[in-house]
Design a protein around this nucleic acid. Structure first.
Lengths: 196, 196
DNA sequence: ACGCTAACTGAACAACCGTTCAATATCAAA
DNA sequence: TTTGATATTGAACGGTTGTTCAGTTAGCGT
């Protein structure tokens, strides 16, 4: 064997992803050049192509990993056996917490989808749909249990997710309310909205 | 006097704004070139500079006009004397209708704010804040009338606006539900969320 | 028909874009 | 110390960017 595989790439690779995420979120995908990313990493632009096939793949990998993480994290903590009300509460708190923890990539995954090719766009949209379905199943269950009173579970799903994701647009650390207080208040509004 | 002022500019000016709005919404501000806009209008790139000082001004004018229109339209139809519940219902229906009617520029005003200079960004944010305050005043009034039960009017404002604006991301003409049905369902959820 | 000006063209500017690649530096294994 | 793959450079590619401007066209008032 020669040099240990990726002796530097183990540092440079993640660094590229981190700087790309930061810059894309700050200025937008199209407004950030490969040279800017390279400069932030401390490398020449050509070196980026040892870690990504092209600029779009850099974006896609960020979004794909995020969606995979999101779905896996939710499934890991979703209370499978519990009643619909408890499951909904868990979902609300999970969504707010997880999204606030990863504000940059969440922002990206809402703003930069149109910079993906048709196939890659479809993949991300599929994952988003998968995640939304997790919520809709809870709402359907609560409807069946007659604990929720929802005029349309599909619309309620979209409404709740939009409402929860909206927290990312205004929440600032050290503001008037802590994350926990925000989660409490949103859970109260969601619970009432579904008639429970 | 010579030629009537703006004999052609009365056509070209609005056409530029319309095509810029369409292209910015479709591909993103940074991804659209002045030459693309000019080509869509049927003119050379240089001609655009008779109507705008630079590319950013083109975006800013679209967003500024939209925010002005939004606030003026709401104030024109806001039921000043009515009780909080009636005013909230009007707001919900107005917001959904107005935003669906202008999906392109609404999309822009959420996605492309970061392409504005600091001063221009602040102006748009100020107008957005003005609009949000209109809703918050309704919520405060309902709280005072004891017809609403809201843990935090600030958060409720953000939650409701995010929820309503979210309609734009999924609504498609000719889908399962009409605009009126969507508005009915959202009003039902909002009413419950505020405890009325 | 003429003059004037608004409207527009087309070329040019320097800067920057994503991407490729031959050359080179780096360093573990032999 | 030599070997050889890994990691990276730096220059180059053709093309595009926003913007400017001298020159041309078009049409109204006289």
């Amino acid at each position: 064997m020669a040099r240990k595989t990726g002796s530097h790439s183990e540092i440079t690779g993640p660094k590229i992803r981190a700087e790309a995420q930061r810059l894309f979120a700050r200025h937008g995908f199209a407004a950030v050049s490969m040279r800017q990313i390279a400069a932030a990493v401390g490398v020449q632009a050509g070196a980026l192509y040892l870690y990504t096939s092209d600029k779009e793949a850099l974006l896609f990998d960020l979004l794909k990993s995020h969606m995979d993480d999101l779905i896996a994290a939710w499934r890991a903590e979703a209370p499978e056996g519990a009643d619909a009300l408890a499951r909904l509460e868990r979902f609300v708190r999970f969504h707010i917490r997880f999204n606030l923890e990863r504000a940059e990539v969440v922002f990206l995954s809402y703003m930069e989808l149109r910079n993906l090719s048709e196939e890659n766009f479809a993949k991300i949209e599929g994952l988003r749909k998968t995640y939304e379905t997790e919520l809709e199943e809870i709402l359907k269950a609560g409807q069946a249990e007659a604990v929720f009173l929802i005029p349309d579970t599909k619309l309620a799903t979209m409404a709740i997710i939009a409402m929860l994701t909206g927290v990312n647009t205004w929440f600032r650390e050290g503001g008037r309310l802590s994350r926990a207080m925000v989660a409490d208040i949103y859970w109260d509004m969601v619970r009432k909205a579904v008639g429970a």
